[in-house]
Amino acid sequence: MSTGTFTPDPGGAPLGRQVMAQAGMEARLILRNGEQLLLAVVIPVVVLLGGIVASKRIDLNLSERPIDLLAPGVLALAIMSTAFTSTAIATGFERRYGVIKRLGASPLPRHGLLLGKVLALLVVEAFQIVVVAALALSLGWDPSVSILGVLLASVLGTAAFGALGLLVAGLLRAEATLAFANLVYLLLMVGGAVVIPVDEYGALGQVVRWLPSGALGESMREALIHGSPAWIPLLVLVGWAAVGAALTARTFRWE
């Protein structure tokens, strides 16, 4: 048979290349989307600046300088917004528009799709961390850093919130996911001990420290204020990641 334009020559690209293509695509789409960018960068920056201004006005009786206490919390907030809210909204609309269905017929396997999503999240988070950290350092932030602690907090926080984001996107319609994911984000930002330490919540602190938001906030603060990994909050994140992943695996519909 002579070779024509369409003569079959099928096959999937090597998995690594497929995953990189998927990660690049998803990261580009997040960073191109105005609302996503607002959530990813603008809100954390506003919270950081607003928190510093507010702490000068009202006496919170903080144990640390406000910037040293707030910067790790804002980093945790940035990770939560991307891993949870962005993932939920983006995945909800991917289901709606048949993107996941279409990719399901491509050579990209499901674990490749998930891996691509996780890599895209980490790329966006790295971008957020650079922006927030640069701003905080310029405002006089003086962290004492545990690289291991920050890495574990970021990765486990991403795993826990990413799994929960997928859970929401798999259960609700796209519009409901949009509303719900934003609402949860706002509630956790204010009442979930992300930005403000668990100790500031009084008796409620005993509850919020077990939330994924409290655990991520505490592990980030421990890693950047005292320079050591916070094992108990990190274990809490592992627990949420396991529960979220198990529920998502049971309930998620690819279409």
């Binding site: 999937g12 491509s106 050579p107």
Partner: peptide, 16 residues
């Protein structure tokens, strides 16, 4: 899957 091509009745791409 790598050996077949699929065209869905509608959708299949990100809106942006």
């Amino acid at each position: 899957l790598p050996r077949i091509g699929v065209m869905l009745q509608s959708g299949g791409a990100w809106s942006g």
